[in-house]
Amino acid sequence: MMLIEETAIADAALPVDQFKAHLRLGTGFAEGSVQDEVLKGFLRAAIAAIEARTGKVLIVREFFWSLSEWRDPASEILPVAPVVSLNSVTVTDTAGAETVVAAETYRLDQDSQRPLLRPVGARLPTVASGASVKIGFTAGMSFGWGGLPADLGQAVLLLAAHYYEYRDETALGAGCMPFGVTSLIQRYRTVRFGAGVMQ
């Protein structure tokens, strides 16, 4: 299984000026934009970390999800949420020949936690041993920064500021995330049940 981000977040969707205000950086200077690329990098890193922790895509973009087989031929759980639309389903046989599955044979179940690719009939198309399937879809909570829930936007700014302030620190533990960030994103995390454990 492999998730590929087909389109990146556009620079215009990043709240660079808001981040500067959050950091209390000086404004009105001729060199005011000199750090913009660095700030964009920290914002992108913070968004990626929060998306990885919650399983939610913040800014709308396109993805491909590649599988060697269906986990369940009656439905396939997509790896991130919320999914806006299904764009394509393509089966590649063992010889490398691709077959685009007719769009009228499948549908999207837009669950906010576990969106599903479902067949219109009884089963999803057969994927033979050694073959693969690729699902193209569009996912995201908002097309722009202003449409995000306020708590998620604040979490991104807090985490990006943490990365900025501690950019030279090498002693922080793996996966370190400030408490304020974890509390803001907690309600967006997907609840998983397995072996009697809720995560």
Rank of each mutant, 00 (worst) to 15 (best):
residue 141 M to P: 10
residue 175 G to D: 09
residue 80 V to I: 10
residue 23 L to H: 06
residue 26 G to L: 11
residue 100 V to T: 12
residue 129 S to I: 01
residue 9 I to S: 02
residue 99 T to Q: 08
residue 138 T to W: 11
residue 44 R to V: 04
residue 115 P to A: 03
residue 95 A to N: 09
residue 86 L to F: 02
residue 174 A to L: 13
residue 178 P to V: 08
residue 9 I to M: 01
residue 76 E to W: 07
residue 164 Y to H: 14
residue 160 A to C: 07
residue 113 Q to Y: 11
residue 32 G to V: 09
residue 188 Y to A: 04
residue 148 L to R: 05
residue 179 F to T: 14
residue 138 T to C: 10
residue 71 R to W: 13
residue 109 D to S: 14
residue 113 Q to F: 10
residue 77 I to D: 11
residue 132 S to K: 09
residue 30 A to E: 15
residue 76 E to L: 07
residue 123 R to M: 13
residue 151 D to H: 09
residue 1 M to L: 05
residue 116 L to G: 03
residue 146 G to C: 00
residue 88 S to K: 10
residue 37 E to W: 02
residue 115 P to W: 08
residue 124 L to K: 05
residue 173 G to W: 04
residue 134 K to D: 08
residue 114 R to W: 07
residue 39 L to H: 06
residue 199 Q to M: 08
residue 113 Q to R: 11
residue 11 D to K: 08
residue 117 L to T: 00
residue 42 F to N: 01
residue 146 G to M: 01
residue 156 V to F: 04
residue 196 G to I: 07
residue 49 A to D: 15
residue 94 T to S: 15
residue 76 E to F: 09
residue 100 V to D: 08
residue 144 G to D: 11
residue 99 T to V: 13
residue 59 I to Y: 06
residue 185 I to E: 10
residue 16 V to N: 01
residue 154 Q to L: 13
residue 86 L to W: 05
residue 14 L to S: 02
residue 60 V to T: 15
residue 148 L to F: 06
residue 178 P to Q: 12
residue 135 I to H: 09
residue 15 P to M: 03
residue 92 T to S: 11
residue 25 L to V: 04
residue 80 V to L: 11
residue 53 R to K: 14
residue 18 Q to S: 11
residue 41 G to S: 14
residue 62 E to Y: 06
residue 10 A to Y: 00
residue 146 G to N: 10
residue 20 K to A: 02
residue 75 S to H: 15
residue 124 L to H: 09
residue 159 L to A: 01
residue 149 P to F: 03
residue 105 T to G: 06
residue 72 D to Y: 04
residue 96 G to Q: 06
residue 117 L to D: 02
residue 150 A to I: 03
residue 7 T to K: 04
residue 126 T to M: 13
residue 153 G to M: 03
residue 191 V to C: 04
residue 180 G to H: 08
residue 15 P to A: 08
residue 189 R to W: 00
residue 103 A to N: 09
residue 49 A to W: 06
residue 57 V to Y: 03
residue 68 S to W: 08
residue 24 R to V: 09
residue 99 T to C: 00
residue 35 Q to W: 09
residue 138 T to R: 15
residue 48 A to R: 13
residue 31 E to R: 12
residue 125 P to M: 03
residue 199 Q to L: 10
residue 193 F to M: 14
residue 82 P to A: 00
residue 49 A to R: 12
residue 50 I to Y: 10
residue 65 W to L: 11
residue 86 L to V: 00
residue 111 D to N: 14
residue 28 G to C: 08
residue 132 S to L: 01
residue 97 A to M: 10
residue 42 F to V: 01
residue 144 G to H: 12
residue 9 I to R: 00
residue 75 S to I: 10
residue 194 G to P: 01
residue 58 L to K: 05
residue 159 L to N: 11
residue 67 L to W: 08
residue 52 A to H: 12
residue 81 A to C: 10
residue 74 A to V: 15
residue 13 A to K: 06
residue 43 L to G: 01
residue 194 G to Q: 12
residue 148 L to A: 04
residue 67 L to D: 02
residue 117 L to K: 07
residue 148 L to D: 05
